[in-house]
Design a protein around this nucleic acid. Sequence first.
DNA 1: CGCGACGTTGATTTGCCTCAACGATTGTGG
DNA 2: CCACAATCGTTGAGGCAAATCAACGTCGCG
Lengths: 191, 191
Amino acid sequence: MKELIEYIEKSTALSEDLINDLKAIAIEKNVGKGEVILQKNTSRKLQIFVSSGCIRAFYIAENGKDHTLQFATKNWWISDYMTLFNNQKSILSIESLSHSKLVIIEQSQLEGLYYKFPEFGLINRTNLQNRIAALQKRIFGLLTLNAKEKYEKFIEDYEVFEKVIPNYQIASFLGITPESLSRVRKEISNS
Amino acid sequence: MKELIEYIEKSTALSEDLINDLKAIAIEKNVGKGEVILQKNTSRKLQIFVSSGCIRAFYIAENGKDHTLQFATKNWWISDYMTLFNNQKSILSIESLSHSKLVIIEQSQLEGLYYKFPEFGLINRTNLQNRIAALQKRIFGLLTLNAKEKYEKFIEDYEVFEKVIPNYQIASFLGITPESLSRVRKEISNS
DNA sequence: CGCGACGTTGATTTGCCTCAACGATTGTGG
DNA sequence: CCACAATCGTTGAGGCAAATCAACGTCGCG
């Protein structure tokens, strides 16, 4: 909770009222390594804020393969936008990669806050737009880069994650096989 | 302008005030086929609403290849989020694929409106979240599907566009070559 | 200790790209 | 109104990056 408040305060002066409202609707949760936070096939509409640690959102495709949609660490929001507005059940799962501290809030409750505190709505809008920019960058990378370039870019962008995330999950984020990633890593270390 | 107002009215009752403010900041523009709406290497922060027609946002990669980021038709917003918040110059270009009617608004002006009319902010937030969902779906497709599947999914999702968009641009959206797309189309028609 | 998860390496296959050539269509200037 | 160029889609041949399949070493953990 402290971390979320600090995060918001980086953008705007925080009123007593907003803090109280936030506390009323937020649930703090500590999760251990490997713990599942959101199971697929549920239909809860949540926003998750990462206070500390590292979590991962992923899909399981029909052939059983695992595809990482997003990693999130301190001060990131994560949510299943694909089911947030369609009333479909989630096909997304979220798990923790380390001991993590989270703040979980129902989407519907947040909507009320944005309305009541326009400056908080602005933060959310900015956050959403940054997210879109990040997703567009990723699409651009998927369209233009080969395996080696993708990995190099990943290291550049996500340096923070390097220690916590197993390689096969990085591969599943980049859209390559663990074997290919291994070869790319070897090639890079030999130069 | 009429189309934008109708679009907003689908979500909320529209006040006289909001309509007037919108009219004050919006620029209507008609563009012909092939016309460039936003040149790369500018730094204007715009939101573009499509009243009618079809437009396309794309990057030119270092090797000269053209990659389509988004197609947009009636009632879609398009914008260069990657430069909206970094003060970098745009690497995105936007062109029209048919005769199109657009509404162009400066990002900074919109921010004021969201603040002044919270219900308008909500529409924008919903719109942003839907956009995120769409981008995530696309990433999932890029990670999991082969050329044929990507094209079939495209036809499913973007049926509307089929007539207007040349195949080589569809290929550049799917991340495959025009030759591959041609072969895929042949294969599909032979079955 | 022994098991399972993970990373690596090798051999082989394959889907897609590249390069090249050729119709079909469109539009433009003489 | 036709000749011509330019643009676009298609087809073929050949090559390559990455996937697949399989085996093995290593590390962490119950």
